[in-house]
């Protein structure tokens, strides 16, 4: 079956005008939006394995594939938290197992410095987490998603988390700091 753009143009317009979509979305109870940056070689593979094993976990998580956790820029994380994600996860290979030798060590340092900075400014701990999950640890991936989702759900929407929002509000200063954190080798 093929659908042309004209066929749904009206639907798109109605959505743009703010009307509730007939196919869910607005109106349903709040569910957290969690973004997980996952390295291609370990955690993304672990997530695929969890699928292969038909493991079940909450559907609030969205994986973003990167070649290596060392590719994730603190600015990516910051943007996600500022623009509407309720939680962000950065995942890579176990220390010592990086496909690119040392990328996860860079990630570890950058993200730990950045996490401390954000939490120092007021971000609620737990909204940004860093985990190491290998390609064979499907169970660990599932458990991580379950526990992170639960934590974020308990914290409620970012929109009503005043201290966190305030922490993220000084965006320019934090972006600068993020650049500094990116420099942490």
């Amino acid at each position: 079956m093929s659908v042309t753009s004209d066929a749904v143009a009206a639907e798109a317009r109605s959505r743009a005008e703010g009307a509730a979509s007939p196919e869910g979305g607005a109106g349903s109870p709040w569910q957290p939006k969690i973004l997980a940056f996952c390295c291609n070689w370990c955690t993304y593979a672990g997530a695929d394995l969890a699928g292969l094993n038909r493991m079940n976990y909450p559907a609030d998580i969205r994986l973003l594939r990167v070649p290596c956790s060392g590719r994730v820029n603190p600015q990516h994380v910051l943007r996600a938290l500022q623009d509407g994600c309720d939680g962000v996860l950065v995942c890579g290979c176990h220390p010592g197992d990086c496909h690119y030798v040392s990328g996860n060590y860079y990630a570890k340092r950058r993200m730990m410095v950045f996490k401390r900075l954000l939490e120092y400014s007021g971000l609620r701990p737990g909204r940004f987490q860093v985990r190491w999950i290998s390609g064979s640890e499907a169970g660990k991936f599932r458990d991580t998603v379950v526990s992170v989702t639960e934590q974020i759900s308990q914290m409620g929407p970012m929109a009503s988390d005043a201290p966190s929002l305030e922490a993220l509000a000084g965006a320019d200063a934090l972006l600068e700091a993020a650049r500094g954190a990116g420099d942490a080798r």
Binding site: L64, V66, P67, C68, G70, R71, V72, N73, P74, Q75, H76, R79, H99, Y100, S102, G103, Y106, R110, R179, G182, D183, R185
Partner: peptide
Amino acid sequence: QGCGACSVACRSGALDLLGFSDEGIM
């Protein structure tokens, strides 16, 4: 090897990783 560690370390944003560009991820 295309790991992208350098593109994050780059202070001036001169380095980017083709296929997983900063813009694409953003």
